[in-house]
Simulated assay, not measured.
Amino acid sequence: MISIIGEYSLLMLRVFQKPQKRKILRKNVIQEINDLGINSVGLVIFLSFFVGAIVAIQMYNNFKASSFPIPDFYVGYATKVVLILEFCPTIISIILAGKVGSFIASSIGTMRVTEQIDALEVMGVNTPSYLILPKVIASLFFNLVLIMISVVIGIFGGYIAGVATGKWANIDYVKGLQNPSPDFFIYYCFIKTFVFAFLIATIPSYYGYTVKGGSLEVGKNSTLAVVWTTVSIIIMDLILTQILLD
């Protein structure tokens, strides 16, 4: 484990050294935004809508089961806070770790086993920067967009749940949404998103870049990349929660 962390750190140092020409970097970043971000919008919208509805219904049921009365408008407030603090930055990032992480690891791993990376290095290209840096930039930028979309769609899902079930009045749900929450909750959400986005881009890149063997090893490393990215996100979630919300 210590050796892996050391190799990962050295690779990250090379990622941010001697970047390619700006024109090439810009072109690669745009391509990665499409591959890593835009292709994930549909999945994020689908999951966020239904989870937002589920969270709202569970909040309502828990409030009604409470031994003391809780106004219905707290359903909207609680749904908003839960989505911002935990579901959107953490759960969506874990899902993206599976979808995006496996794609990154397999694509770079395939280039490694087919000796395309070796060919680039012979040409004097800083391959970690050329292959990984655009993915890091695209992930940091578009993951933030995805999380913002997730929050909005999740809140909308909770609203539709109220319309469909009739358990709470729409005006109460909207009143709960308008109830002010600490501004730091938004900053906390964005900080977690940036950290998780960096992990999603770099850990799978490491496993793809360091793969040895053939196509079978590419598959194994893609699986390891998803597993360790997910584990890292959970650990960092605990650390950031303790540091930022203490």
Rank of each mutant, 00 (worst) to 15 (best):
L146S: 03
I2T: 13
I94M: 12
V100Y: 07
I84Y: 05
E217N: 11
D118H: 04
D246P: 09
K80A: 12
V81Q: 10
S129R: 05
A119E: 08
S66T: 09
P89D: 06
A164M: 14
A105M: 01
Q242S: 12
P19K: 01
E86C: 05
G219E: 08
I132P: 03
N61E: 15
I191A: 06
I147N: 03
T229P: 06
V41A: 12
P134T: 04
W228F: 15
Y130Q: 00
M123I: 07
Q116E: 14
F141G: 04
I95F: 06
V29C: 12
A197F: 09
V145M: 08
I95Q: 05
K80N: 13
G124A: 08
L11M: 11
P128H: 03
A119C: 08
P182N: 05
I24R: 02
S102C: 12
V100M: 10
Y8L: 09
I153D: 01
D172L: 05
E217Q: 15
G219I: 07
L36M: 13
L216Q: 14
I155T: 07
I155H: 00
I149Q: 04
V152Y: 13
I186H: 10
M12F: 11
L47I: 08
T127D: 06
I92G: 01
G124I: 02
L144Q: 05
N143E: 04
T110K: 10
A225F: 08
G176N: 02
A197K: 02
I70C: 02
G52V: 05
V163I: 13
G37W: 01
T110R: 08
G219M: 08
L11Q: 04
E115G: 11
D172Y: 03
K220C: 02
S48E: 03
G124D: 07
P128M: 07
A65H: 12
D172P: 04
L199G: 03
L216N: 14
R14E: 11
L83P: 03
W168Y: 10
V125F: 03
S67C: 07
V211Y: 07
G214T: 10
A161C: 15
W168C: 05
V55N: 02
I171C: 03
V174G: 02
L11D: 01
S48T: 00
E32D: 08
P19L: 07
L83T: 01
V226N: 00
I233K: 00
I54Q: 13
Y159A: 06
A78Q: 09
M1Y: 10
K99S: 10
T210G: 10
F142L: 09
S181N: 11
I235T: 14
L140Y: 03
N34C: 10
P71N: 13
L199F: 11
G154S: 10
I132M: 07
T210F: 11
T114F: 15
I233G: 01
I132R: 04
A197R: 04
S3T: 15
I200F: 09
I234Y: 09
I5F: 14
Y206S: 04
Q17P: 03
L85I: 15
L216E: 15
E121Y: 02
K64E: 14
P134G: 02
